[in-house]
């Protein structure tokens, strides 16, 4: 078994309105910053042990599918690194 950190990033699908990101963008603009747009995402860093990085990825994928992301509104990606 090897120790891995699986990083799951969950973001809204393209085209799904993100009112919190829009509010954050406006707040940055009020502070005087110039920006075109802003997107936010949730990042989960999961420490786990698995036989291979593929197995770690598979488990993290299932976690995203079953809980961390809502497929109706979210896309997600998974990165796996040894730790």
């Amino acid at each position: 078994m090897t120790a891995y950190t699986a990083t799951v990033t969950v973001r809204l699908k393209h085209g799904v309105l993100d009112p919190e990101a829009e509010t954050t963008k406006q707040a940055l603009e009020r502070l005087g910053f110039e920006l075109d747009s802003l997107r936010s995402a949730d990042r989960f860093e999961i420490d786990l042990e698995a036989d291979s990085s593929g197995a770690a990825r598979e488990r993290a994928d299932e976690m995203a599918e079953r809980l961390l992301a809502n497929p109706t509104i979210h896309d997600y990606d998974v990165e796996v690194d040894e730790r």
Binding site: V16, P19, T72, I73
Partner: peptide, 17 residues
Amino acid sequence: GCESGLTDGAFTTNESA
């Protein structure tokens, strides 16, 4: 209900935030 698959779609952050 939506999160559990009883109904379709999702209820998410109001447009007004």
